[in-house]
Computed example of a mutant assay.
Amino acid sequence: MRSADTIVIGGGLSGSAIALGLVREGAGRVMLFDEQLPTQRLSRGNFGLTWFMCKGASHPIYAQWSRLACQHWPDFAARLEEESGYNIELEWTGGAVHAIGEEEFKVHTESIEGLKAVCAQVGLDYPVKMLDRQELAELIPKIELGPEVSGAMYTPEQGHVNPLKLMAAMRAAFQNKGGTFIGAQTVSAILPKTGGTIILKTNTGDYQCQKLVVAAGHGSTRLLAPLGEKLHIYPQRGQLMVTQRHKRVLSIPMLCVRQTPDGTFVIGLSTEDTALDNRVTTEAMQSQAANAIRLFPMLAKVNWVRAWGAIRVMTPDGAPIYSRIPGNDNITVVALHSAVSLAPLAVNIVAPWIGGTGDHELLPHFKNGRFDV
Rank of each mutant, 00 (worst) to 15 (best):
Y62Q: 07
Y62C: 03
W92H: 06
C70Y: 04
G85C: 13
R67D: 02
H72A: 09
S84E: 02
I61T: 11
A78H: 08
E83K: 14
G101S: 13
R67P: 00
A78K: 14
Q64A: 09
E82I: 06
S58W: 10
L80Q: 07
E81S: 03
K55L: 04
G101D: 10
P60L: 12
I88H: 09
W92M: 09
Y86A: 11
Q71N: 11
I100Q: 14
S66L: 00
A99T: 14
V97L: 14
A96L: 09
I100P: 01
C70M: 11
H98I: 14
W92S: 07
W51G: 00
S66H: 08
G95S: 09
P60Q: 11
A63S: 11
D75P: 02
I100L: 15
Q64H: 06
K55D: 04
T93H: 14
E83D: 15
E103M: 05
Q64M: 07
E83Q: 15
V97Q: 13
H98Q: 11
E91K: 09
T93G: 15
A78Y: 00
E82N: 06
L90N: 05
T50V: 15
P60E: 10
W51H: 07
R79S: 06
A69S: 12
E83R: 15
G101K: 10
I61N: 03
A96S: 12
H98G: 02
L68V: 01
V97M: 13
K55N: 06
